[in-house]
Computed example of a mutant assay.
Amino acid sequence: MSTRRTALPGVGTRYDFATRGGRRLSVVVHQDGRRFLGFYSADDPDACQESVPLEPDEATELARLVTPSPLDGVPADGLDLVTGHLPLDARSPYGGRPLGDTRARTRTGASIVAVLRRTSAHPAPGPDFRLAIGDTLIAVGTREGVDTLAAIIAGG
């Protein structure tokens, strides 16, 4: 399988690939961060059959769901632990604030075990670690705890 990259001047970049089953897919990454997922016929690779617009956070979640990961559910002594990738976007009240302000473990029982930033990873961040818009928090806990933490981080 190979991916073909095509610059779209004034728009962004289009990435095309075909599955082993013959389905043709494209992802158009706009300059403003929006993405479109398109489905094409093998008979006519220029005729889009279906298009799904995705906001940046939706594209991130879709990527998380389709990326094979051994960390999605880790059984430990009969307990089901999960990991969550929690994006910190502009709606979050925690941008620019210390991690300790989230009170994640106290409020949810879930732990933030790492913070991914555009150019770096920060494992085991302490309570004084300053969060930034665009960070992705890696949390471990029960499904309920991680889901509750995701809502807190999102500003819910």
Rank of each mutant, 00 (worst) to 15 (best):
S26H: 11
S26F: 06
V27Y: 05
V27Q: 01
V27E: 00
V27C: 04
V27R: 00
V28Y: 08
V28W: 06
V28E: 08
V28K: 05
V29S: 06
V29Y: 01
H30L: 12
H30A: 15
H30R: 15
H30F: 15
H30N: 12
Q31Y: 05
Q31L: 13
Q31A: 15
D32H: 14
D32V: 08
G33A: 11
R34D: 01
R34N: 09
R35S: 04
R35M: 08
F36R: 10
F36Y: 11
F36I: 07
F36K: 05
F36E: 12
L37Q: 03
L37K: 00
G38K: 06
G38W: 00
F39W: 12
Y40T: 04
Y40S: 03
Y40W: 11
A42Y: 10
A42V: 09
A42K: 13
A42L: 08
D43Y: 11
D43W: 10
D43S: 14
D44W: 02
D44F: 04
D44E: 06
D44V: 04
D44H: 08
D44A: 09
P45S: 13
D46W: 06
D46E: 14
D46K: 10
D46F: 05
C48Y: 06
C48N: 09
Q49V: 07
Q49F: 01
Q49M: 11
Q49H: 06
E50N: 05
E50K: 10
S51W: 10
V52L: 14
V52G: 03
V52R: 11
V52T: 10
V52Q: 08
P53L: 12
P53E: 10
L54G: 02
E55C: 05
E55L: 14
P56Q: 13
P56R: 14
D57V: 10
D57M: 06
E58F: 02
E58R: 09
A59H: 01
A59K: 01
A59N: 04
A59F: 07
A59L: 04
T60R: 13
T60W: 07
T60S: 07
L62W: 02
L62M: 09
L62Y: 00
L62V: 06
A63N: 02
A63E: 01
R64N: 04
R64G: 03
R64I: 01
R64W: 03
L65Q: 04
L65W: 01
V66P: 03
T67S: 12
T67D: 05
T67L: 05
T67W: 03
P68T: 00
P68S: 00
P70W: 07
P70V: 09
P70A: 13
P70R: 12
L71Q: 08
L71W: 11
L71T: 09
L71A: 13
D72C: 01
D72G: 02
D72I: 02
D72K: 12
G73V: 10
V74G: 08
V74W: 10
V74S: 09
V74A: 07
A76E: 05
A76W: 14
A76F: 15
D77C: 07
D77E: 14
G78F: 11
G78H: 08
L79Y: 12
D80T: 12
D80V: 07
D80E: 13
D80Y: 07
